[in-house]
């Protein structure tokens, strides 16, 4: 059972009138408004290049928006100091499309890298225990001493997820978590996303082209078209909606 979002109405992410362009005549976002409620999984759908990743990169402060407002935990992330932004970033996890594992580090070092920096009170033994526990959660305890180059695509995603979870984020931004994976591994990753939401009470934005993942993980779906949100609703409602273009995602 998914948690009922209606009982968790406090938005943890609030975006109003977000604009972003990359050079002249290349407006990617043209006034995005969205909210993510506490413990809600919001799925963002849209064609490639429609600006889905730009939205979550703006939330994480990786891309600077041209106009608009982004509030995370009631704090506007524009015009705040770097230190304050980093405090917010510690409460946000980001799973990159490419997993973005540090190639020069082993799996253990990949997980220890953020943990050791932000939890200085932990001893080396405690760090190792936390890493082992986190790897067990994603079902890859045996990969602890492997290098990223020795891992398959699905394993990389899981390790990336473990690294994201190790700082206990309250919000997780997933950038195409199942892209490039076979259907079985995709389902396993989708189930993992769902179990994280239940277990850790996290709120998430999930960008995906995988409709099975959207169906399984999404409490609410948003569809982006030409830089604006053109449809919003549950999976079933959108699938049975009147808009032909929207329905074409579900075919």
């Amino acid at each position: 059972m998914k948690p009922d979002p209606s009982t968790q109405d406090n938005p943890v992410i609030e975006i109003k009138g977000l604009y972003k362009s990359f050079g002249e005549n290349n407006d990617v976002l043209k006034g995005i408004d969205l909210t993510v409620k506490k413990t809600e999984n919001l799925v963002l759908l849209g064609k490639s290049g429609s600006g889905k990743s730009v939205i979550i990169k703006c939330i994480a402060g990786l891309i600077e928006a041209d106009k608009g407002e982004i509030k995370v935990f009631d704090t506007s992330i524009f015009d705040i100091t770097n230190a304050k932004l980093n405090e917010i970033r510690l409460r946000i996890g980001f799973l990159f499309q490419s997993s973005a594992l540090y190639d020069s580090m082993s799996v253990r070092e990949n997980l220890a890298f953020p943990l050791a920096r932000h939890s200085k009170e932990l001893t080396e033994e405690e760090i190792n225990l936390t890493i082992e526990k986190e790897l067990e959660n994603v079902g890859l305890a045996e990969a602890i001493d492997k290098m990223p180059s020795e891992l398959s695509g699905g394993m990389r995603k899981r390790i990336g997820l473990a690294r994201t979870l190790i700082l206990k984020p309250e919000i997780i931004l997933y950038d195409e978590p199942t892209t490039g994976l076979d259907s079985i591994t995709s389902r396993e990753i989708s189930e993992l996303i769902l179990s994280i939401q239940k277990k850790n009470k996290t709120s998430s934005i999930i960008i995906t082209h995988d409709m099975a993942c959207a169906k399984l993980t999404g409490d609410r779906l948003l569809i982006l078209k030409d830089g604006v949100i053109c449809a919003e609703g549950s999976y079933d409602a959108l699938e049975k909606g009147e808009d032909k273009w929207v329905r074409s995602f579900f075919v």
Binding site: K57, A60, G61, L62, N86, E87, R89, L90, I92, G93, F94, F96, Q97, S98, A100, L101, Y102, D103, S104, F113, P114, R117, H118, L167
Partner: peptide
Amino acid sequence: AELGSMKVTEQIDAMEVSAI
């Protein structure tokens, strides 16, 4: 080459979002 490939594969972004 090392930092360029880290940039391309979003490893630098990953550091930034981990507040490093």
